[in-house]
C-alpha cells in the first residue's frame, strides 16, 4: 500500500526506505530526489570525473535498493551508510588510477567559465583527485570526508567505524602527504602568480 507522498516528505530517510521496500514507488522517487545530489557530489569531488561519478552514484543507490528489505529502521542513518558506500566505491576507482597520467582524466563539464579558467580548474581538480589516488585508501577517505565533504571528526569516525583518534591521525597524515605530493606543481597549477 502506498503512503501519501505528503506524509512521506515529512518522514526520515530510513522510514522512506522501508516504505520503498514495501512497494511504494513514490518512496523510491523521494529517496532519489533527497539522496542522489549528495551522493553524486561526493563522488564528483573525489573523482573529478562526471561519468565515473554518475556510475558510482548509480551503483551506490543500487546497493541501497537491494539492502532496503533488510534495513532496520532506527539503527543506522541512511546518509551515514551512503557516505561509507560512496567513499569505498570511489577509493576502489582511485586505486585503479594510480599510474594514470593527468591527461587521461576526463574534464568536468562546465559551460559557464572561460576556456582558460575552465582548463585551470580542470587541471587543479584532476591534480587533487590524482594526489588522493596516491594515498592509502583510509587516508584518502578520511581526508575527503573532512576537507571535501566538510564533515566533523565524530561523523567521520561513525562513517568509517574507527576511533576519533584514528580520524585525527588519518586526516593529519593524509593532508601532509597530499601537500608533499602537490608541492612541486605550484607553477603548473597556476599558483605561482597568486
Amino acid at each position: 500500500m502506498n503512503a501519501p507522498l505528503g506524509s512521506l516528505h515529512e518522514a526520515p530517510d530510513d522510514a522512506v526506505l522501508v516504505a520503498y521496500a514495501q512497494g511504494d514507488d513514490d518512496a523510491a522517487r523521494l529517496l532519489a530526489q533527497r539522496l542522489v545530489p549528495r551522493v553524486l557530489a561526493q563522488a564528483t569531488r573525489l573523482l573529478a570525473d562526471q561519468a565515473e561519478a554518475e556510475d558510482v552514484a548509480q551503483e551506490a543507490m543500487m546497493r541501497l535498493w537491494k539492502i532496503a528489505p533488510d534495513w532496520r529502521q532506527g539503527e543506522a542513518q541512511v546518509s551515514t551508510w551512503l557516505y561509507r558506500v560512496v567513499a569505498n566505491l570511489c577509493t576502489d576507482r582511485l586505486r585503479k588510477r594510480r599510474g594514470v597520467s593527468l591527461d587521461q582524466i576526463a574534464e568536468p563539464a562546465d559551460t559557464q567559465m572561460s576556456a582558460a579558467a575552465r582548463l585551470q580548474e580542470t587541471a587543479r581538480l584532476s591534480a587533487l583527485a590524482n594526489a588522493l589516488a596516491q594515498l592509502p585508501d583510509r587516508q584518502a577517505q578520511a581526508v575527503s570526508l573532512r576537507h571535501l565533504e566538510g564533515l566533523s571528526n565524530p561523523q567521520i569516525a561513525e562513517i568509517m567505524d574507527i576511533s576519533l583518534r584514528s580520524v585525527e591521525s588519518l586526516t593529519a597524515r593524509g593532508k601532509k602527504a597530499l601537500t608533499e605530493l602537490l608541492a612541486g606543481r605550484r607553477a603548473e597549477l597556476g599558483y605561482e602568480d597568486e
Binding site: 554518475e54 543507490m61 576537507h147
Partner: peptide, 21 residues
C-alpha cells in the same frame, strides 16, 4: 575548489536510478 563542486543530477541519471529501484 573541490568542495564547491555540486553537480545537479541529470534527468537521465535519475531515470536510470528509478529504473534500478
Amino acid at each position: 575548489l573541490g568542495k564547491a563542486q555540486s553537480p545537479v543530477p541529470s534527468e537521465a541519471l535519475l531515470a536510470r536510478i528509478q529504473n534500478d529501484a
